[in-house]
Design a protein around this nucleic acid. Structure first.
Length: 558
RNA sequence: GCGCCCGUAGCUCAGCGGAUUAGAGUACUUGGCUUCGAACCAAGGGGUCGUAGGUUCAAAUCCUGCCGGGCGCACCA
């Protein structure tokens, strides 16, 4: 419909002014119509004609040519407003999002928690955002490979392993049995804090940790699964992955295809740096191997440190290469926090030397930090970080306080929606009480708006389904249909930009329109029951689809 | 110091490939349940869109300076 009208306007411009011009329709305020364009305002300059005059001419030209358009009007400084016929509007309500990525292969990397550490609030945010973006891509027809990358080697592992060894009294893997299964993740995070503190405060411990770190790298190099040290390492690494799996499961998100541990791409990364060194892309500096970013308006970063160990940069190079070798993707999406944007630019610039096609197909999305109300930022250094589970617990508590009972689906809707409704990029303020609040722009509001509609449908008699043709829509009905008809194009927009918040904004508006309709319009036992039941069905289905696109559950009852 | 990002109602945010009267939520005030779920709806007040310029018939939206905030800038990730 949109394209048909756009085409009609283009044709009119050609016929009237012999001008080829791109026309894009907008969705104006209801009082003006269903679609609008401001081409006349653009043309007026080139043609040196009053915009209203041009608008009038185009409107006349289009008028009567399309049965779907009921009215074409000129308004304001020179807008052309189109009002669709009820039939066309109803048809539009059934349109589906475009399969714009059909046949494409996409790799989506997000969440990325590190084994041997705890999931913090930022991980929760990345996970939910990445999950929604991956879903969007998939919905547009792409084959999406969801990858979860994480550091199973590196200094933080050295810190945790150092503390673990102290805890179990040396290389005694059997001592690990004393750690209870449910507390393992927690236990590991305590060890990390211990190791981190020691590293910062105690020179001797620091030296030991550096040695342990090296030991971990060596263990991978020999593929050692047998020595006591290796047994401790592998056991604890598995504990981490098991813990992450459990966490994702309760989050009700799409499953990851696999974890990509850093250790599996390390050697590839090192080889690339060595090769790049020979080819002059990297250079030695103070014993380290670095990439000079300055010629590209970037900064210099170390890829292999002076101890001969690869840094995150080198591993990221290996990761990118391994993704490419495995998937030959059309698009690679990486979602992380935004403190890493400059870093990523350097890595991508270095990567350009090896795989320019990978760089051009990569998209790095970054989000901000989670803050608590009052602008209090979480401090990540010390032990007092806000953990992922803290967010969920806070939401559960708030929900319990508000409702008097537990409802995990409401809690999930609250948290996910609270994170997703804002444009990706900036910091977000998370207020547990507000997210769980059942009024206002919240996940639970949408769930309620869905359940309410379903409950009408459940009470209706499905037998009397002989449709008597479509009567003219009344005001409230028309508003509802119009809003439903915006679903497909909203999803298209969200997909094109990979911005899930557009869907949130839309769904909230949709639910609002429905609630107003509900307030004014009797559905059951009304002369217009047939039509209205169709609308309610269409509405509830649309809302459910939209929520599912965000992986937010849409229960029939609450 | 350099680079990147951000500054829209008290608070939290949409809108930002320019355009028809700046929108929501929340908080505050008020009204609406003997009829489909009131977790709802309706009404009201509240904004020099950080600031000063520039481009334009038209700027919250584009450009520049300034102010304020966040983040990043070599062996952490």
């Amino acid at each position: 419909m949109r394209q048909k009208i756009e085409q009609a306007v283009v044709t009119a411009c050609q016929a009237l002014y012999r001008l080829e011009i791109a026309v894009e329709l907008t969705r104006p305020d209801e009082q003006f119509g269903d679609y609008a364009t401001n081409v006349a305002l653009h043309l007026s300059k080139q043609l040196n004609i009053n915009p209203r005059e041009i608008a009038q001419a185009i409107a006349e030209h289009v008028k009567g040519k399309m049965s779907d358009i009921e009215e074409v009007a000129v308004a304001g400084p020179g807008f052309i407003n189109f009002r669709l016929s009820d039939l066309a509007l109803l048809k539009g309500a059934q349109s589906k999002p475009t399969q714009s990525l059909a046949g494409k292969t996409v790799v989506a990397e997000y969440s990325d928690p590190n084994p041997f550490k705890v999931l913090h609030a930022g991980h929760l945010y990345t996970t939910i955002t990445g999950d929604a973006i991956a879903k969007l891509l998939e919905n547009a027809g792409a084959t999406v490979h969801r990858l979860n990358y994480g550091g199973d080697v590196g200094l933080h592992v050295g810190k945790t392993m150092w503390a673990i060894l102290r805890f179990v009294g040396g290389e005694h893997p059997e001592q690990l049995e004393s750690v209870e299964a449910v507390t393992r993740l927690e236990w590991l995070s305590e060890r990390y804090i211990e190791g981190n503190t020691a590293y910062e405060e105690n020179e001797q411990a620091k030296a030991q940790i550096v040695a342990v770190n090296k030991q971990v790298y060596e263990l991978h190099a020999r593929n050692d699964h047998d020595t006591p040290f290796a047994q401790i390492y592998w056991t604890c690494r598995q504990w981490s992955y098991d813990g992450f799996d459990m966490f994702y499961e309760q989050l009700h998100i799409s499953k990851f295809e696999k974890y990509v541990p850093e250790s599996t791409v390390t050697q590839l990364g090192i080889d690339m740096v060595q090769k790049g060194l020979r080819e002059g892309v990297f250079e030695r500096s103070d014993g380290a191997i670095v990439f000079k970013g300055e010629p590209h308006d970037l900064h210099t970063r170390v890829f292999i440190n002076s101890g001969g160990l690869p840094t995150y940069e080198a591993k990221d190079l290996g990761l990118a290469a391994s993704k490419w070798q495995e998937y030959q993707f059309d698009l690679s999406v990486i979602i992380t926090a935004n403190d890493i944007v400059e870093y990523m630019k350097v890595v991508l610039k270095a990567l350009e030397h090896f795989y320019p096609e990978v760089v051009s197909r990569s998209k790095h999305f970054t989000h901000g930090v989670i803050k608590l109300p009052g602008g209090v930022k979480m401090s990540s250094r010390k032990g007092n970080i806000l953990r992922a589970t803290d967010i969920l617990d806070a939401a559960r508590e708030a929900n319990q306080a508000a409702m008097g009972h537990d409802n995990e689906q409401t809690v999930l809707a609250a948290v996910k929606y609270a994170f997703l409704k804002q444009r990706i990029g900036g910091d977000i303020v998370y207020d547990p009480a507000e997210s769980v609040a059942l009024e206002g722009n919240s996940g639970p509001y949408l769930q309620y708006a869905h359940a309410r509609a379903r409950s009408i449908l459940a009470k209706s008699d499905p037998a009397s389904a002989d449709s008597p043709g479509v009567p003219a829509l009344d005001t409230e009905e028309r508003k509802l249909v119009r809003k439903i008809s915006e679903y497909a194009e909203t999803v298209d927009k969200a997909t094109a930009e990979l911005m899930p918040h557009h869907i949130c904004t839309y769904l909230y508006e949709l639910a609002q329109v429905f609630n107003r309709f509900y307030e004014h319009s009797r559905v059951l036992n009304d002369p217009r029951q047939e039509l209205r039941l169709q609308l309610v069905t269409s509405y509830a289905d649309t809302l459910k689809k939209g929520l599912e696109l965000l992986n937010i559950p849409a229960p029939e009852h609450m």
